[in-house]
């Protein structure tokens, strides 16, 4: 299991290749990569703030919960903070398992929880000014699926 919280850009493809060099009892790997999406008005910059003392611990807790629920050989979570521009990679999740159902479900679960339980906050600056991204009721509802 690896959790990385970093300001620097990363190569999601290279990370996935490295993650895929795993034991021979792994039958499938699922990965998700999150990108900065442009918004109406044109995004100048997305700034991601986080709570350094809490972030890695919170993510590790979410990963532990996934490992308790599904049979996972390995998990990777990378999440960036700082200033990002449209098209840049914000984060990725990868799960390795014997069977694909566990890998898909765990990746989906991790994304739902990272969205509303890991201490990150996004602020978007466009030509019209800066605004904090608001959480959506559907993000909170998504947790009830699990």
């Amino acid at each position: 299991m690896a959790v990385r919280v970093q300001e620097e850009a990363f190569d999601a493809g290279a990370e996935l290749n490295a993650f895929s060099k795993t034991g021979t009892d792994v039958g499938g790997i699922v990965s998700f990569t999150g990108l900065v999406r442009d918004v109406a008005g044109g995004l100048d910059v997305m700034e991601i703030e986080h709570y350094p003392a809490m972030t890695e611990r919170a993510i590790a807790g979410i990963v532990s919960e996934a490992q308790a629920r599904w049979s996972l050989a390995d998990v990777l979570v990378i999440h960036r903070f700082g200033k990002l521009r449209a098209g840049e990679t914000i984060m990725m999740v990868a799960t390795a398992s014997k069977h694909r159902a566990d890998a898909f479900a765990a990746a989906d679960f991790l994304m739902d929880y990272l969205k509303s339980r890991a201490p990150f906050w996004k602020k978007e600056t466009t030509g019209e000014g800066a605004a904090w991204v608001e959480s959506k009721a559907e993000d909170e509802d998504a947790l009830k699926r699990w």
Partner: peptide, 12 residues
């Protein structure tokens, strides 16, 4: 020792 206040998180 430490208390933090913040809006709902928007990670991912």
């Amino acid at each position: 020792r430490e208390v933090a206040f913040f809006p709902p998180m928007t990670g991912g």
